[in-house]
Amino acid sequence: MAKVIGAVVVDNEECKGCGLCVVACPQDALSQNKQVNGRGYHYSFMKNPQACIGCSNCATVCPDSCIVVYRVKINEVRTEPVLVS
C-alpha cells in the first residue's frame, strides 16, 4: 500500500508562536518550542516528524505564511504471505 509521509519547515524567525498550527494538525506532529526566537515568540517545530502526513493544514491556517510543506508517496513492497505446510 502506498504510504504518504510529509515534512514541514517552519521559518523560526517569522513564526509568531500563535499556536494555531498545533491545533490544526490532525496527527499531533507539531508543538510550540520551549525556546524563543529573536523576537521572543515560542516558535512551532515538529515534535514528532514521523507522524507528519503532509496534509498542509498547518500551512493553511498559518497567518504569517511561515510554514512550507513537503510530501512524498512511498510505494511499499507488499510481501505475499507464505503458506507453511
Partner: peptide, 14 residues
C-alpha cells in the same frame, strides 16, 4: 527528513 525536504516534493508554500 533531508530526502523529503526537496523542491520536487513541495505541496504548500507562501
Amino acid at each position: 527528513l533531508a530526502d523529503i525536504i526537496n523542491p520536487n516534493n513541495l505541496v504548500y508554500e507562501k
